[in-house]
């Protein structure tokens, strides 16, 4: 494992911890999109099917369990927790996330490396992860006033994606040169979705202002 991959995994882990910290200690999910969180839970559930069939490493198994457990517990908190659910802004979080799922299923059935259940599910999870942040970004645009933890959560997610691209570049040059178009392109699309957010995040950080997105 190279340094970019490890740093990517750690920023991903921190992003989840920041979100859980916000929900668990402040008992608030204000500014957090349930739609995006549900999509992430689906992404992990379809991608980590190999957890019982293929053993890669203890690290790999533990991280998969953490991401599965955290994503489902975040969804549980927002939907069921008697205090947290009150802070959920249902009227603002209106992105029709179900309409993202069907195109991803069709795309995964058409464009995949192997036409097997596990492989199609894995490919579906890559396509879905690429667009899963969209409901969250739309919600941010609407709420405008973004609290620090929510801003950090999205920043860390974007950092994780950027580091994964550096990891693929590194792997391409240090390992056998295989081409992974599906992973690379969906990963690149996903990272580009953060470009706008990054711009305003760094802008507010540089000027020491509160993060605000333009209407």
């Amino acid at each position: 494992m190279n340094i970019f991959r490890l740093a990517g995994d750690m920023t991903h882990l921190f992003s989840v911890l920041v979100l859980l910290l916000k929900i668990h200690t402040i008992k608030s999910c204000a500014g957090i999109s349930l739609k995006t969180q549900e999509l992430y839970a689906l992404v992990f559930a379809t991608r980590y099917l190999d957890i019982f069939t293929d053993y890669i490493s203890l690290y790999n198994t533990c991280m998969k369990l953490i991401f599965l457990g955290s994503s489902f517990s975040i969804v549980w908190y927002i939907r069921r927790h008697k205090i947290v659910r009150r802070s959920y802004d249902k009227e603002q979080d209106t992105f029709r996330h179900h309409f993202l799922i069907l195109p991803c299923i069709i795309l995964a059935l058409l464009i995949n490396e192997k036409f097997t259940v596990k492989e199609v599910m894995w490919t579906f999870s890559l396509y879905l992860e690429a667009v899963a942040i969209l409901p969250q970004l739309v919600l941010l645009q609407r709420t405008r006033n973004i609290d620090n933890l929510t801003g950090q959560y999205i920043f860390l997610l974007g950092a994780y994606r950027s580091l994964y691209i550096l990891n693929w570049i590194y792997r391409y040059f240090t390992e056998q040169h295989y081409v992974h178009w599906i992973t690379w392109i969906s990963g690149l699309v996903q990272t580009l979705l953060y470009a706008d957010f990054f711009y305003y995040y760094f802008h507010s950080w540089k000027n020491n202002e509160k993060l605000q997105l333009p209407a």
Binding site: D9, H12, I56, F67, W122, Y178, H180, T183
Partner: peptide, 10 residues
């Protein structure tokens, strides 16, 4: 094993 199989990623 395929050393460059990205299935070892998360």
């Amino acid at each position: 094993t395929d050393s460059n199989d990205l299935k070892d990623e998360l």
